[in-house]
Amino acid sequence: MRVLGIETSCDETGVAIVDAEAGLLAHRLYSQVDLHALYGGVVPELASRDHIRRILPLLREVLDEAGVEGPELSAVAFTAGPGLLGALLTGASVARALAYGWGVPALAVHHLEGHLLAPLLDDARLSFPFLVLLVSGGHTQLILARELGEYELLGESIDDAAGEAFDKTAKLLGLGYPGGPALSRLAETGAAGSLRLPRPMLDRPGLDMSFSGLKTAVLTAVQKGEYAPAAVARAFEEAVTDTLVEKTRRALEASRAPALVVAGGVAANRRLRAGLEAMAGAQGVPVFFPRPAFCTDNGAMIALAGLRRLQAGGADSGLAIRARARWPLAELTLEHSV
């Protein structure tokens, strides 16, 4: 059983093929970072147009590397949401057309389900149930994954996502776009203890988070001009890490989940990884991360999610081309449709 996955939810075009026995056969990813850096953020119309240019050449490369002909596939999976609607519709249109032409099912995949299953690309030990900390530019959520298609939202950011806060803070420090990785590199050179920023919402119960106030605290520190940019970057990264680690600890305690998954673009952050590994180790809970290349959006996680759904009896999405810009993960079921 082999599934082709297509990811076009935002500013990365991903295509991959996953085999039920052999695992990942081939994958390609094209990032639009250089395109959007000119504007300081993602421009939806430009993102959609670039997906159109990139998707078919990437598809040909993946099929050639995997040594697979289209009709030999078991299904074509595509990201149906959430994301930028125009970008989503680009991938959905191509996937639906390919599936129709090859005579195979087309499977609509939830982008966040792809992220939370991504560790399975490298580590087959992971099994349901588990707790998920999903940290990306658009989402910061704590999710209890009971079974495939059965997810409970335990807590989330009530304003900026962690990745969004990283990018906005980087902009305050003059680091350009995308700012998260640049901020983390700068933080590695910052002096420890020279500045302490607030840990939002840790003084109250619950699992929700907030990062907009932390961004304001950074702005105040920058305006005072008393701290080196590297010290501010380190203090910010430490504050985000401490907040996410403590909220995740509380979620593990409340849910009694036997394993922890950390996924999304911010899951590649080394300080966060170290903090979560130490916390989970103290709790006696194994923690699973995707490899850094699969923390960001990619076609491999969509192919894997499609494969898992196909194995569970997932249905073809039908001939209609649909996508959802907003799609709460808690609405997902094994028989979901967009």
Rank of each mutant, 00 (worst) to 15 (best):
G103W: 00
V109S: 11
H111E: 09
H111F: 05
E113S: 02
E113L: 02
H115Q: 07
L116T: 04
L117D: 12
A118P: 15
L120H: 09
D122I: 03
D123A: 09
R125L: 00
L126A: 01
S127M: 09
F128K: 02
P129T: 00
P129V: 00
L131I: 06
L131K: 07
V132F: 03
L133D: 09
V135E: 12
V135H: 13
S136V: 14
G137W: 13
G137Y: 13
G138A: 11
G138H: 12
G138W: 10
G138C: 11
T140C: 08
Q141I: 08
L142I: 05
I143F: 04
I143L: 15
L144H: 08
L144R: 10
A145G: 01
A145V: 01
R146K: 08
R146N: 12
R146H: 06
E147F: 07
E147R: 10
E147V: 10
L148K: 04
L148N: 02
L148D: 10
G149I: 14
E150R: 13
Y151V: 14
L153H: 10
S157N: 01
I158H: 06
A161R: 05
A161C: 03
A162Q: 07
G163L: 06
E164G: 06
E164R: 05
A165R: 03
A165L: 11
A165M: 11
A165Y: 04
D167Q: 13
K168F: 12
K168E: 15
T169S: 12
T169R: 01
A170K: 00
K171L: 12
K171V: 14
K171Q: 15
K171M: 14
K171N: 13
L173I: 05
G174V: 15
L175E: 15
G176R: 15
Y177V: 11
P178I: 11
P178M: 09
G179I: 14
G180V: 01
A182Q: 11
A182Y: 12
L183V: 07
L183E: 00
S184Y: 07
S184D: 12
R185P: 04
L186V: 14
L186G: 10
L186D: 09
E188P: 00
T189N: 08
G190I: 13
A191Q: 09
A191K: 14
A192R: 12
G193T: 13
S194M: 11
R196G: 03
R196M: 08
R196V: 13
L197P: 05
L197M: 01
L197F: 04
L197Q: 07
R199K: 10
P200W: 00
M201Y: 00
P205Q: 14
G206W: 06
L207W: 01
L207H: 02
M209R: 04
S210M: 04
F211H: 03
S212M: 01
S212I: 04
G213A: 06
L214W: 00
L214G: 09
T216S: 15
A217R: 10
V218I: 10
T220C: 11
A221R: 02
V222W: 09
V222N: 05
V222D: 02
Q223S: 09
Q223T: 01
K224W: 14
K224V: 08
G225L: 06
E226H: 15
Y227L: 01
A228P: 02
P229W: 09
P229R: 10
A230D: 03
A230T: 11
A230S: 13
R234H: 05
A235K: 11
A235P: 09
E237S: 12
E238M: 01
A239I: 11
A239K: 00
V240P: 04
V240H: 03
T241H: 04
T241P: 02
